[in-house]
Amino acid sequence: MDQPLTDQPLTDQQPTRRSFEELVAEGAAVPTEGWDFSWFEGRATEARPSWGYARSMARRLAGAQAVLDIHTGGGEVLDLALGEATRAPTLTVATEVWPPNVAKATARLRPRGVAVVATRDDAPLPFADATFDLVVARHPIRADWPEITRVLQPGGTYFAQHVGPASVFELVEYFLGPQPDQIRSNRHPDRERAEAEAAGLEIVDLRAERLRMEFHDIAAVVHFLRKVIWMVPGFTVEKYEPELRSLHERIESQGPFVAHSSRHLVEARKPRP
């Protein structure tokens, strides 16, 4: 799937109203490994980017020989794209930094012949220069442009969907208060264009969209903040119990909490000599 939360419509049947304590306990108990967001169906929604990243990735996989997927999570998107590709690359490798996701991705991707390599976000990619003709990434922690350029073959392509600036900041600022402009502008596509070009890449395509999200109960908020841990660093139910209770009452009386995710599609090419 191309986004964190399901975009399926909610059922017209009204669920039985549940207490704040019950909902928070449910949101706090859901496992957070991997990037499968199917648990949110019926309790949170997010619109899909118009470009359909997984489908677009599948088309590029079919024409590639050696592929690297950076920050694969639990391998969900790569697995989906490989399943839709008309031809599998000769070599496909994925990296992941979080140990529980490494195990999950390995179990998911091994049947497809994909090797999953555990890495650190602050370390160079553990591959030789000019190894891959296609590097992909969906929501990488950050784009290390010099390393991406280094491992790409001349003429190779980087094709990724990035999280953009001030993504879901309605929720972030509900808990943390107004954020400075410097933080709000992090991950701006114009900045990433400049960084990619400085590393020696040519931008082929760069498109950005903001997408409506809705949280329909406080359990969805709790699970989201436990899963996407950089949104509200150090989030725990105990630490933010007053804010959570107030937000629960707001959702109960006014309807879903609305936020907007920020996404951009990046396609860049390493020039030939």
Rank of each mutant, 00 (worst) to 15 (best):
I183Y: 15
I183E: 15
I183L: 14
R184P: 05
R184M: 11
S185H: 07
N186C: 07
N186D: 08
H188Y: 12
P189K: 07
D190K: 12
D190L: 11
D190S: 13
E192W: 02
E192Y: 05
E192R: 03
R193Y: 00
R193H: 02
A194R: 10
E195A: 12
E195M: 11
A196I: 06
A196N: 00
E197C: 10
E197S: 11
A199N: 04
G200I: 06
G200C: 09
G200L: 05
G200A: 05
L201C: 03
E202L: 08
E202K: 12
E202C: 04
I203Q: 09
V204E: 14
V204D: 15
D205E: 15
L206V: 00
L206Y: 01
L206T: 10
R207K: 12
R207C: 06
A208H: 13
E209W: 05
E209M: 06
R210Y: 05
R210E: 03
L211T: 06
L211V: 05
L211P: 02
R212K: 09
R212N: 06
M213Y: 14
E214G: 00
F215R: 08
F215L: 15
H216I: 06
H216F: 10
D217Y: 08
I218W: 02
A219W: 00
A220S: 00
A220C: 11
V221F: 10
H223R: 09
F224T: 07
R226W: 13
K227W: 15
K227M: 14
W230P: 05
M231K: 04
V232S: 01
V232T: 07
P233A: 12
P233C: 08
G234P: 12
T236V: 06
T236R: 04
T236G: 07
E238A: 14
E238S: 07
E238F: 09
K239H: 15
K239R: 04
K239N: 10
Y240G: 01
Y240M: 04
Y240Q: 02
P242C: 12
P242I: 02
E243I: 00
E243F: 03
E243T: 07
L244V: 08
